[in-house]
Simulated scan of single mutants.
Amino acid sequence: MKHRRSIELAPPEGFAVEEKQTLATLPQWFVVHARCGVCGYQSLLERRGIARRCGLDLSLARLAGRLKCRECGNRSDNLLLLGKLPRD
Rank of each mutant, 00 (worst) to 15 (best):
R87D: 12
G73V: 01
C72R: 01
K84Q: 11
R66K: 11
F15T: 12
D57T: 15
G40M: 15
A51D: 07
L44K: 02
E19H: 08
R75E: 04
E46G: 05
L81C: 02
R47W: 08
A34H: 05
T25E: 11
I50F: 03
Q21M: 12
T25K: 15
R52D: 15
H3G: 08
D88A: 10
V32C: 04
R62G: 05
V31Y: 07
P86T: 01
V17S: 13
A10W: 04
P27C: 00
I7F: 05
E8I: 07
N78V: 13
Q28T: 12
L45A: 04
L23Q: 10
I7W: 08
E13A: 06
R70L: 06
L67G: 03
R75P: 08
I7A: 06
V38D: 10
T25W: 04
S43K: 08
N78F: 02
F15K: 15
K20W: 00
H33F: 12
R4Y: 09
L63T: 07
L45M: 14
L80A: 04
C54L: 15
L67T: 02
L9C: 14
S6V: 15
G83F: 13
K20R: 10
L44I: 06
Q21C: 15
L23R: 07
L79I: 12
C72T: 01
L82W: 12
A34W: 03
Q21R: 10
L80K: 03
D77I: 09
T22V: 12
C36S: 07
K2L: 09
I50V: 02
I7V: 11
D88Q: 13
L80V: 04
F15I: 14
P12Q: 14
G73M: 13
V32H: 07
R47T: 11
S6H: 15
Y41Q: 09
G40A: 15
F15W: 14
V31Q: 09
V32Y: 09
V31F: 11
A16I: 11
G73Q: 02
A51G: 10
L58I: 14
G40F: 01
P11I: 13
F30A: 00
A34M: 06
A61Y: 00
E71C: 05
K68D: 02
P12R: 08
R70N: 03
A51Q: 03
V17Y: 04
P12V: 12
E18N: 13
E46Y: 06
A51P: 02
L79A: 12
D77K: 01
E19F: 03
V32K: 12
C69Q: 13
P11G: 12
C54M: 00
L67S: 06
L26F: 07
L9N: 10
L58Q: 10
C36R: 06
E46W: 03
R5D: 10
N78R: 00
R52M: 11
E13W: 10
R47E: 04
Y41K: 03
R48S: 14
